[in-house]
Nucleic acid binder design. Sequence first.
RNA 1: GCCCCCAUCGUCUAGUGGCCAAGGAUGCCAGGUUCUCAGCCUGGAGACAGGGGUUCAAAUCCCCUUGGGGGUACCA
Length: 445
Amino acid sequence: MSSNVKVRFAPSPTGYLHIGGARTALFNWLFARHNKGVFLLRIEDTDQQRSTEEATQAILDSMKWLGLDWDEGPYFQSQRLSIYKQYAEKLVEQGKAFYDTDAEGRKAIRFKMLDGVTEINDLIHGTITFDTSLIEDFVILKADGFPTYNFACVVDDAEMGITHIIRGDDHISNTPKQIALYKAFGFKMPEFAHIPMILGEDGSRLSKRHGATSVTDYRDKGYLPHALVNFLALLGWSPGNDQEIISISEMIEKFTLKRANKTSAQFNNIKLDWMNGQYIKNTPVEQLTAEVKRFFEKSGIDMTKITAGWLTNLVILYHERFKTFLDLQNQTRFFFTDAIEYDQAAVSKFLKKEGAGELLKEVYAAVSQVDNFDKKTLEDSLRALTEKLGVGFSKLAQPMRVAITGKSVSAGIFETMELLGKEKTINRLSHTIKNLCETSEAVKF
RNA sequence: GCCCCCAUCGUCUAGUGGCCAAGGAUGCCAGGUUCUCAGCCUGGAGACAGGGGUUCAAAUCCCCUUGGGGGUACCA
């Protein structure tokens, strides 16, 4: 079963795929999949100065990473130059366009914009009216033989049979020009749907030209593609209920342009982090472990001595505690190196205290005697110690935590010790007692 | 300057004339769980930009103002 719906995503390869472009691609993709239509990819590389192959590759990679698979293409406009030339000359022959030489002596073809009123029937905005006498005769074929955006876009969309043009709001004012072109050629008019733009967190325009965030940035920081997709889908669209976490298949099922809104949205990293955390919690440990391994390796952490079982235990311990893979990496750094960076505030608060050394000496003695180095045994042993010393458990836990992890914040201390192993644990305790604690003369370690 | 688009909690949004003394999410605050933090649970503060209309009734329709965004290229 298929419909006649055919849409496209047509980025220009002048930079990485940024968040706004990704959202446009996503809406097109969702629309195509919902309608069982065709989604095609077209690279609009008509700006010889700014287009690069690296950018093209980055865009393709980003699309794949997000899971936005295309059914046709990628087409490259730079490979279709003769087509645009033919169409442009046809317009000249019909008297609808003319050769024009500018002050710099460049000879181009301009389209004759007829005076009148153009109405756009936008699927999202409704009717938008333009007075075309305000629009100048615009260049359709540049002196270098390349078409301009408005021209190539129309020729391609018509030739490729695009039925719905779903693109950013910023193209609304291009639309009357394109409609004029459609009419001049007698092409079948497509439907237009202009979706709102995504703004940066400060409310200003988010775009690659302003050094904004790219999809690859998010991949490299350890976000899950589905979480990003989910987040992006909810920027300008909603399923119509209070649902926030929506699977891809559910999105496809529910996606309609009717439910797309027309208000521009500000990108909000905090909510993305929350959402990514939700996705991480919902990802099975086994799968997460594989991805953590890959991410850590890529970050240059030596994983050769790390066993699969150990890494799995690490992921289990941190499953509900990290929001991105990079976040996990930062939280668990002390497991992978003995060159621990001690948080100075934590050291002075918990270690540079009268009696801290004595306390940790007791801990050291107790921990040294634990043979079954598991959290249960460790807890029993240390709880017994607090009773013997007559102190509350947090009195022990914090100095231990700083000694072992370097920070005053970590996962459960017994679990952490078990995972670290006995040797490293007692080494860190003794190192701390010798070098970081405040100890009275009588009990020098 | 001119043209176009947009306007609900800080942010993302629900809301298409009565069900809204405006719902959800995030963030924030407080309490609970607890070895810290996170998580989780419970509670709280928080918005219809302003002004005119239309109507028995407006967040919802119209107009103006203000604010934000976009376009005005031989960039896309």
